[in-house]
Every structure is written in structure tokens, then in C-alpha cells.
Write a protein that binds this DNA or RNA. Sequence first.
RNA 1: CGGGCCGUAGCGCAGCCUGGUAGCGCGCUUGCUUGGGGUGCAAGAGGUCGGGAGUUCGAAUCUCCCCGGCCCGACCA
Length: 480
Amino acid sequence: MAESPITPRDKDFATWYQDVVIQGDMAEPAEIVKGCMVIKPNGYAVWEVLQRELDTRFKATGHQNVYLPLLIPESFLKKEAEHVEGFAPELAVVTVAGGKKLEEPYVIRPTSETIVGHFFGKWIQSYRDLPMLLNQWANVVRWELRTRMFLRTTEFLWQEGHTAHSTHEEALEEVIRMLKVYAEVAEDVMAMPVIMGAKTKAEKFAGALRSYSIEAMMQNGLALQAGTSHDLGQNFGKAFDVTFQSKEGKLDYVWQTSWGVSTRLIGGLIMTHSDDKGLVLPPKMAHRKVVLVPIFRKEEERALVMEAAVKLAAEVGAHIDTRDGHSPGAKFFHWERRGVPIVLELGPRDVAAGTIVLKRRDTGVKEVIPQTELAARVAATLEAMQKDMFIRAKQRLADNTVIANSLEEVRAILDDVTAEKGGGKFVMAHLKDDPSNDAAIKEFRASVRNIPLTDEYDGPGKCIITGEEVERRVVIAKAY
RNA sequence: CGGGCCGUAGCGCAGCCUGGUAGCGCGCUUGCUUGGGGUGCAAGAGGUCGGGAGUUCGAAUCUCCCCGGCCCGACCA
């Protein structure tokens, strides 16, 4: 018998993650281009579910999809000083095209704020053109020095929302609205609990007034920034001269927002739910929710079992694994590694007894149920699984969140935590939003993840570094 | 980008130190067998030893350069 190809989590979390991604047939390193990956059908299907869930909500909140050029004139990036400074180190630049050196190089988009700024300038004249609510599904390239599949790759897929508003208040409402959409998809669809909050000034998006994020906790206790929403203020409006005339006839710059989530969410999904046997998908994220494995020996049995299998599979929309030459056991392992929520087993004994075996992926519990109850039991099990997986993840987040009242405490808690060994915690501490304080936290390889929107702790307190009074505790953790 | 480990059949690895024309397990193909958690037996197919240059009569093996992967950092919406 072959050994499990998946490294246990407690042995080496980072290797476990790699194993799950590959054994779950989600993706593999491209190898031909540094830091890039190939997203395989089983992984892309998960992305398609996310796209559908997000896109539906974007449309419901009044946004429309657009598509903008992949290449950006280098000069565009330079129009917003902070923006170019933030992105310059990770840009890939096209200098030759059509066999000729370009007069002005093109940058492969790391994000599209600058291009959007340009077109907003063309499209917006009046307050009647506002708000302009756009979204783009696209790929972007950032030349990261260290990559991990799904979590940080050179090229990745994402959506980037870009909106323009006539007032700052309205823009801020948009920023929070979309942050909440992200939180809703993370929690209700991905069963991945998140903390909504503001990034510190030091951690904000290059060119933004304020950034907000949803932060999730992986099974090793490390934080994952799962989505961001930015209040761009009038920074890009001014850089690209995006003005509009108000009702009163006054000219003003638009107030912009941008927000995005990426294929990184898939990495978060994996590190939230999967186990030592492989991928575990919450039912709402599974493109294939139920698989039926038929079992038979002789030809007469095959006919009998298959007849019942086809009928039952149709009732619950199950995929029947009809592959020849694979034993049922091999098929069980196959689907288990791929995270299918429910696997049904149907053999001669079941056909004779009018029963069927139902196994749920998350708990591994197997039960024999009457065929007449199949549809109801499958529906109930999927629903229970979705709920249970969220509760377990939420509990883990709670169990690994601790309070600290001094910098030394924070250091002690986060000391010796790494991606491979785990042991990470979310440390809640009072800390003033000041870049020098972020720097102090960085000393021990952690960061302020965000300042939660809602305070679930003890309200105001003294900053553990400066002693100044601050409104609430912030989340400090090591992160991907 | 710094430090460490690594790249040999689809996958996991041995061989490398001490140069002599490539091997094991799994998987794959065919046949029989088996089938309720990776069936068993038999016969087969499959390799530019990551790439290039050098040393040598001869390089998977020694030297140099490059490409790529993983981990720890730095960096990073």
C-alpha cells in the first residue's frame, strides 16, 4: 500500500500546503516562468465559483464590468508619486515590441488605478456621470521575490473594482460596502471567518488615503489578507485631472475607491479547511458536491448497480465515477484528495437492501441510509457541513486569538512562529497607528494586520509602545 | 535579493564523495485476477540525468555559469 503523499500538518505546515494543492489537483508550479503557476481544472473550477458569487454581488450593488489594457504607459505610473514608489520594485516592463525598442516602455499592469484614472478623466464631466461604478476581472503581474502557489504568484487572477464619486462620504460608503461584500463571500460561501478592519498608515495601499482589509487566520495561526478596499481620496483624481462639475456649477476632483480580491482566496480556502488527507471544500465552493462510487463484481451486478446508481445520482446531481480498472478504494482516495464534500457508495448489498452509503468529507463520518431519503439527507448534510466548517474555523480563530498588554508580551507570543512550524496567534493589543510603531512590530517579523471595524474587546486603552490613549485593540500577527 | 536544501522515467527516490555508457518503488500499457478504503500475479513501454560551457580517452558523477523549485529572511495591496 502506498503511503499518503500528503505531509501531515503538524510535521511541516508549508509542505502540507504544497502537497494539498498538488494532490488536490488544484495547481502546479509552471516551472518555465519564475513564480508562475498553472491553475488546473480542479482549481480553476473553484475560482469560477468565487467569480460567480462575487460578480453577482457586484452587479447587485450597481457595478458593471469593463476590460482595460494589460499594458500601461510607464509615464502613467509616475503620475501618482506614492503609487509609483510603492510598485516600482515589482514591475515587469516591456521595452521591445514588434522588433523595435519602444520610445516609451509599457508596464505590465500590477493594478489598474492609473489606467482607470486616465479613462475616468475622459468619461466624467458632470455630477450626472457619478457615481461611476466599474469592475474588471483580469490578470496582473507583480515581480515578487518570494512566491507560493495561490498565496503570492508572479502573475495572478483577480478582480479590481474602481469607482468614482462626487463626495468623500459617498466614496467611503462604497469602500465599506465592498469590504462587507468580501466578508460575506468569505464567511457565507467560503466558510472562512474574517476580521474587517482598517490597515495602518504604514500598511495602506500605495496612493490611498486609507485601506481596509479582511484578515483570515490559517490553520497554522498565520494571518492572510484576503481582500482589500481602498479610499483613494482625490489622489488619483488630481494626478489624472479627473474633474466634474457639481450641481452648483463648481469644478471638483472626483473621489475614488478601488477594491480587490484575487486567486489568493483559494490559498486561504485551502489553509482554512483542508486536512492531512487532502483538500476539503465547503459545499458552496465545490463545483462537484456529490460523487457516487458504484461497486460490483460480476457483470450481472454491474447492470443492477448501475441502474440504481444512475437513478439515484440524477436525484442529487451526483457525478458517477464509472472509471474502469480502479477499485472502489482507489476511487474513495481519489475524491477525498480532491475535496468532494459527499461521496456515496452503492454496491450489490445496498441495491438489495434499498440503502446507500453516504460519507461526508469534513468529518469522515460514513452512514448507511435508505435510498428513499437520499435527496433529503444529501441536502441536509451539505447544509450542515457548510455550517459546521464555518463554526470550526470560527472557533479556531477564537482559540488562537489572545490579548497582550505589553510589547514584550506580543513578542513572546509571536516568537518562534513560522509558516512551516505554525503556532501563530492573533494578538490583540492597544497600539497607536503610527509608522514607527509598525516598525517596532516588524522587529519580530509580525505586522499590524488591521484595526477592527468593530471592537469585540475592552475599548480604549494605552498604546503598548507610546502609552498614548487609543480607541481599541488592533490585530497583530505574522502573515503570509 | 541574502542564507540553506534541491533538480536523475508521470510521481517519490538511489547512484555522485572514489568518473567507465542509468537503477528501485509507485504509477502507466496488455492479459488474467480482484472489487464495501490505495487487489494480486505476469509480461511490457517509458530517461536530452534541469540547460550550457569546461576538464577528461570517457561526465549523472569533477569545475564554472545560467534556469527552476522548496524553506528561512529581506521585500511585498
